[in-house]
Design a protein around this nucleic acid. Sequence first.
DNA 1: TCATAATATGACACGGTGTCACTTGTCAAT
DNA 2: ATTGACAAGTGACACCGTGTCATATTATGA
Lengths: 208, 208
Amino acid sequence: MPKQTFFNLSEQKRKTLIESAEIEFTRVPFFEASIANIVKTAGISRGSFYQYFQDKDDLYFYLLEVKLKKAKIYFSGFLEKHQGDLIEALIELQHYFLHALSDEEEKQFLKNALLYTTHRVESSFTSVWDTYLDHQEFKKVGELINREYLNIAAEKELLHVFKIVSALAFNNLIEKTVKGLSDEEAMDSFRLSMSLLKQGIYKQTNKD
Amino acid sequence: MPKQTFFNLSEQKRKTLIESAEIEFTRVPFFEASIANIVKTAGISRGSFYQYFQDKDDLYFYLLEVKLKKAKIYFSGFLEKHQGDLIEALIELQHYFLHALSDEEEKQFLKNALLYTTHRVESSFTSVWDTYLDHQEFKKVGELINREYLNIAAEKELLHVFKIVSALAFNNLIEKTVKGLSDEEAMDSFRLSMSLLKQGIYKQTNKD
DNA sequence: TCATAATATGACACGGTGTCACTTGTCAAT
DNA sequence: ATTGACAAGTGACACCGTGTCATATTATGA
């Protein structure tokens, strides 16, 4: 988290700084991004930067978090729209992400995020669920999900289902980025994954 | 890939260098590891290092690849043992990985690999399948898999099933490492994932 | 008005990378 | 044995990046 000093800054200055950071993280992946460039673009001194943020990580994950906040809100909306059908809501959420990837700059930013950073990025993405599961919000979204559809025995399994779908969603974003798939191709791939997951990959027999 | 020069080296020298690299990558994550340390431990000059490898990446992914080669061989064995039951073979493969993680040094090395490196590490892990799918070997393993169990329509879906299970297996390794789960806890979690995937997470209805 | 705290600054110490002109080793041909 | 030519080895060097700190500037409020 940025230091208090950062939040004390004037709206204008904060905005300039954030934009400079976005430019740099769009230009190159996290590990190549230099604070020197960011402060130069923002027109502040090197020392000031460290007055606002612990380090590069601090700024980066703050940026990412802000960007992902929107997604969380969308997801609740999608769930309502689809009468609590988890998979349908997810497919629409994925569509939203893939659409975001079609703005050239967002695209590059996300590409850099997906390909050249550590598991912390994945955590940021999947924390879309954590927020729900850990806190009060869980109840809210937990309620939105229609368990009628789901083949789960206990609440513990629901959490597991979340883990599985996050892993597959994240994987799909990476796949699109690495292989340069079109939005449609990526969505087809994701829908197939979801469909296999829904039905199960094993034939239903009596021995199980 | 290391340069030819590296392979021209004497067995002894190559081994020393590899061991020095392992020490460094066990000590700290990839991005903190320094070539300076590696060459110091190995007792060679900085310039020599660049004679052998393109850069740090080159050495690192070579190392990782060597370590993962074993896994590929094991997997074929597990498949045979379980009469081509994909999931059972996978569960045993995951067990093998988790076991490897119980040697203190391997553990730290893999932890550093899982947590602090880019998607290329994930690619290295999932390439266990790629090798099968792309090349002649595919036929070999493809044949080992008993499709009787599987609820798939086309060969294309089999590839997708591979993608799904790799994503979940990798995720499980990360989960264990991040949350510090015991081997048993991690295996339980993985078995649950596999079980949900087998059965499907949606109730079977007529409308599908 | 002034004391005090908050903020801003950039030179600096440190540590890392990749390169390159140069040295040393190797070995086949004479 | 000597040569020469090519492969391998070397470490000083140029360059770039980080995080810190003593100092300067600005804001605050009594």
